[in-house]
C-alpha cells in the first residue's frame, strides 16, 4: 500500500551526543551505575518513612472518597494507589505494589458511571495497611500472598460484572 500523504521526515543534529561525548559508542557507564546503586543504598534508610507517608496518603484519600464519593475524590484515590504501585517495590514492599496495582486496576478500569465498590476498596486499603504495619517485605509470605491473590480475583470479578 502506497502512502496516501507525504510526510516530512528529518533527523535533527544530535546535540546531546555532541555535548556529552562518549566516543563512538560508550555504552552503559558501569562506574556511574555502581555509584548510583550505592547512592540508592544510602537513601534506603528514608524509604520506611516514605512508605509510611504513602500509606497515610492512601488512607486519607480513601476516607475522603467514603465521605464524598465524587469524581475528584475518586481521581485522588486512583492517584494515591497509582503512586504507591509505582514506588512500593522500590521501598521493598512488593506485595504492597501488587495490592495497590490491583486497587489501581479496579478504580482505573471500572467505567466512571459505575459505582466503585467501597467494600472492595476498603479491603485493599486495609491489606496495604496491615502489610506495611507488619513489615511484610517477603513476597512469598503465605498469608499476605493469599490475601493479595484473593483481592486480585475479586477485582477481576468486579470488572467482569
Amino acid at each position: 500500500m502506497a502512502r496516501e500523504h507525504p510526510i516530512e521526515l528529518f533527523m535533527p543534529p544530535n546535540m546531546l551526543k555532541a555535548k556529552v561525548g562518549g566516543g563512538v559508542f560508550a555504552g552503559l557507564d558501569m562506574g556511574a551505575i555502581r555509584r548510583a546503586e550505592a547512592a540508592m543504598e544510602e537513601i534506603k534508610s528514608e524509604f520506611s518513612a516514605w512508605a509510611a507517608a504513602d500509606v497515610e496518603k492512601l488512607m486519607a484519600a480513601r476516607a475522603r472518597f467514603a465521605k464524598t464519593p465524587d469524581a475528584p475524590s475518586r481521581s485522588a484515590l486512583l492517584r494515591a494507589a497509582h503512586d504507591m504501585k509505582g514506588q512500593a517495590a522500590t521501598f521493598n514492599y512488593p506485595l504492597i505494589a501488587r495490592v495497590s496495582g490491583s486497587l489501581s486496576k479496579l478504580i482505573g478500569e471500572l467505567p466512571a458511571e459505575k459505582e466503585l465498590p467501597l467494600g472492595l476498596v476498603d479491603a485493599h486499603v486495609s491489606a496495604i495497611h496491615v502489610i506495611y504495619r507488619d513489615k511484610v517485605m517477603d513476597e512469598s509470605n503465605k498469608v499476605a500472598l493469599a490475601l493479595t491473590l484473593e483481592l486480585e480475583a475479586r477485582v477481576a470479578e468486579a470488572l467482569k460484572a
Binding site: I7, F10, P12, L16, K17, G22
Partner: peptide
C-alpha cells in the same frame, strides 16, 4: 544512553 546514541528521526 538511548536518547544520546539512538535518537529517532522526527516526523511532521
Amino acid at each position: 544512553v538511548s536518547v544520546i546514541e539512538s535518537p529517532r528521526p522526527y516526523v511532521r
